[in-house]
């Protein structure tokens, strides 16, 4: 039982980070029909941007700020203007393939210009432990979980309680009608790209101290977050959050109680089962399209 509690806490901490990345997937899909297969690499890159700033002599806090700003510029604005806008007019599939190419390019660029080896990355959560229900739980796990949940709550409030959030939702639901009623659709779409860039930068900040900064570290994350988004519901932010947490916990429980070798397969089996019985995902809404 105590072991189960450890596994749940660790799983929720990892799952919260998957949720941040998965939310980005859903936001981009809803507002611009973009499936970003480079999302995992988007999580990998901000850590290297921050490391580069630190190597230039800046303190960690400044590296975080500059890293997030550079992420907004490169992974938000740059991604939209240079890749999504030119490719989207040719359809969803060419864009998806273009993001795969982008993923490879980002990995190779980091390998070439930084290093093929892993690098240590400082943690924003201090080391130490607390005792909960008689179990020693690290502050780092709790800190990651708390920060990720705070961001998700903030994002939910932004989407549901603010005018900008309502305009973003209107853009996601029907951009033509949204444009007619005066919603600045293009600006809303750009905003979702910037939010995605912020979320991946934050995920990078939280996960890299554990996974280490390495050019290939986005592969696992991207896949896990993509599965999480589908499991939870690709067209619902709350679905992506639930999916992320669920995949984090299932992954840990699978590693402990099934097999380390098959741990990566278990979330995929879950994905298949959910697609078969609830194609829209756990919390997603059914979508119909005419052909």
């Amino acid at each position: 039982m105590s072991n189960l509690l450890d596994l749940l806490v660790a799983g929720l901490a990892t799952g919260a980070i998957y949720a941040l990345v998965a939310v980005g997937f859903t936001l981009l899909w809803q507002t611009s029909q973009t499936i970003n297969f480079a999302q995992g690499e988007f999580v990998m890159l901000p850590a290297f941007l921050m490391l580069a700033v630190m190597h230039a002599g800046a303190p960690f806090w400044l590296a975080i700020i500059l890293g997030i700003l550079l992420s907004l510029l490169l992974l938000g604005l740059g991604f939209k203007l240079l890749l999504v806008d030119p490719m989207l007019r040719h359809g969803v599939l060419p864009l998806a393939i273009a993001t795969m190419a982008l993923a490879i390019g980002m990995k190779e660029a980091v390998k070439q210009f930084f290093s093929a080896e892993a690098s240590p990355f400082p943690s924003i959560v201090p080391a130490g432990d607390v005792s909960i229900l008689g179990r020693v739980i690290s502050l780092q796990s709790l800190g990651v979980l708390a920060l990720a949940i705070a961001v998700v709550i903030g994002l939910t409030l932004l989407l549901n309680r603010t005018s900008i959030g309502h305009q973003m939702q209107a853009t996601a639901q029907n951009p033509t009608v949204a444009r007619i009623i005066g919603v600045p659709v293009e600006r809303m779409i750009l905003l979702t790209f910037l939010i995605n860039a912020f979320l991946v930068a934050l995920a990078s900040l939280l996960i890299t101290p554990i996974y280490l900064a390495k050019f290939s570290s986005g592969e696992v994350l991207g896949q896990a977050a993509f599965i999480a988004a589908i499991v939870g519901g690709f067209n619902q932010v709350r679905g992506a959050i639930a999916g992320g947490l669920l995949i984090g916990v299932v992954d840990n429980l699978a590693a402990a109680y099934v097999s380390t070798q098959y741990r990566a397969a278990v979330p995929m089996v879950l994905l298949i089962v959910i697609i078969l019985f609830r194609p829209q995902g756990l919390l997603g809404r059914p979508e119909e399209r005419t052909v």
Partner: peptide
Amino acid sequence: GQADFAADVSKIKA
């Protein structure tokens, strides 16, 4: 190449 060792360490603790 494994990135997450949380489950393995939980097993060690158990």
